[in-house]
Computed example of a mutant assay.
Amino acid sequence: MPKKQKKNTRGNIITAAWQLFYEQGYENTTVDEIIVAANTSKGSFYHYFNGKDALLSTLAYLFDEKYEELEETMDSSMDSYEKLLFLNQELFTMIENSISIELLARLLSTQLVTRGEKSLLDRSRLYYRLLSKIIMEGQTAEELRTDISVGEIVKAYAICERAFMYDWCISGGEYSLRSYSQRMLPIFLSDFRKLKSE
């Protein structure tokens, strides 16, 4: 039980912080406001984070919360290819609706310059575990190619998603991230599908 409480406290801080970042901007949000919104103490905040900047890399945590929710509601009748497209569309919808371009750009830039842990590449994240599970199931069901490893397909998919997000940020959101991905990701993923004649 104490471990779950720890996770909830950290999660509450992250959720409150990103909600405030979205509503009033990163620069205009203070640590004190985050503490109040998370209904926690200053001691608890600094136990998990050494300051506001440390929260930038936690966007991956919010993404994983979304994936956890999606895993529970995903239609089990979809094939692996459809599941991958579904996850992408839902994530990119969330990004467009609740994460500002400036915040996403900050996250991507911190990942480029950090010497420590890169949260977007953390293979222990739910994101990577869920993708691996879907792709493994797809290979077993002969929906996806087996001449490319699960790990390589996961890596290619993750690179493609990050590329879409990066381009959307540097383009200043001049197009819909979700709509662009909806058109282009199926073309990218089609190469991983097992041909019917095989």
Score class of each variant (00 low, 15 high):
residue 184 M to C: 15
residue 107 L to R: 10
residue 69 E to R: 14
residue 75 D to A: 11
residue 127 Y to L: 13
residue 47 H to P: 00
residue 32 D to S: 15
residue 95 I to R: 02
residue 136 M to L: 13
residue 96 E to Y: 08
residue 180 Y to R: 13
residue 198 E to Y: 10
residue 197 S to E: 10
residue 46 Y to E: 06
residue 118 K to A: 07
residue 91 L to N: 06
residue 193 R to E: 14
residue 121 L to M: 07
residue 120 L to M: 12
residue 97 N to R: 11
residue 86 F to G: 04
residue 173 G to Y: 05
residue 92 F to Q: 05
residue 153 I to Y: 00
residue 63 F to I: 15
residue 109 S to T: 11
residue 113 V to M: 11
residue 56 L to H: 03
residue 110 T to F: 10
residue 21 F to Y: 07
residue 104 L to S: 08
residue 45 F to I: 06
residue 196 K to E: 12
residue 159 I to G: 04
residue 165 M to H: 01
residue 11 G to C: 06
residue 137 E to A: 13
residue 46 Y to P: 02
residue 89 Q to K: 14
residue 129 R to K: 14
residue 144 L to Y: 02
residue 35 I to Y: 06
residue 104 L to Q: 07
residue 152 E to K: 10
residue 97 N to H: 14
residue 10 R to P: 00
residue 64 D to A: 05
residue 139 Q to H: 07
residue 182 Q to V: 11
residue 70 L to N: 06
residue 38 A to P: 00
residue 184 M to V: 10
residue 189 L to S: 04
residue 192 F to A: 13
residue 45 F to M: 02
residue 18 W to R: 04
residue 17 A to Y: 02
residue 186 P to A: 14
residue 32 D to I: 15
residue 68 E to K: 13
residue 120 L to F: 12
residue 168 W to L: 05
residue 108 L to W: 00
residue 51 G to N: 04
residue 157 Y to S: 02
residue 36 V to I: 15
residue 158 A to V: 15
residue 16 A to P: 00
residue 27 E to P: 04
residue 8 N to Q: 15
residue 135 I to S: 01
residue 147 D to V: 04
residue 141 A to R: 06
residue 33 E to C: 04
residue 76 S to L: 12
residue 145 R to S: 10
residue 80 S to D: 01
residue 67 Y to W: 07
residue 18 W to H: 11
residue 62 L to F: 01
residue 158 A to M: 02
residue 74 M to E: 12
residue 93 T to E: 13
residue 179 S to Y: 05
residue 71 E to M: 14
residue 22 Y to L: 03
residue 168 W to A: 02
residue 53 D to E: 08
residue 48 Y to P: 00
residue 130 L to Q: 08
residue 49 F to S: 04
residue 35 I to H: 03
residue 11 G to N: 11
residue 41 S to C: 03
residue 23 E to A: 15
residue 128 Y to L: 09
residue 54 A to L: 02
residue 182 Q to F: 09
residue 92 F to P: 03
residue 81 Y to G: 11
residue 48 Y to Q: 03
residue 168 W to C: 07
residue 94 M to D: 07
residue 121 L to A: 10
residue 16 A to G: 07
residue 80 S to T: 11
residue 61 Y to R: 01
residue 109 S to W: 03
residue 189 L to R: 07
residue 152 E to I: 07
residue 173 G to S: 08
residue 193 R to D: 07
residue 47 H to W: 05
residue 167 D to C: 08
residue 171 S to D: 08
residue 167 D to S: 12
residue 135 I to D: 00
residue 171 S to R: 09
residue 73 T to Q: 14
residue 182 Q to Y: 09
residue 127 Y to Q: 11
residue 54 A to T: 08
residue 136 M to G: 15
residue 48 Y to N: 01
residue 33 E to I: 03
residue 185 L to W: 00
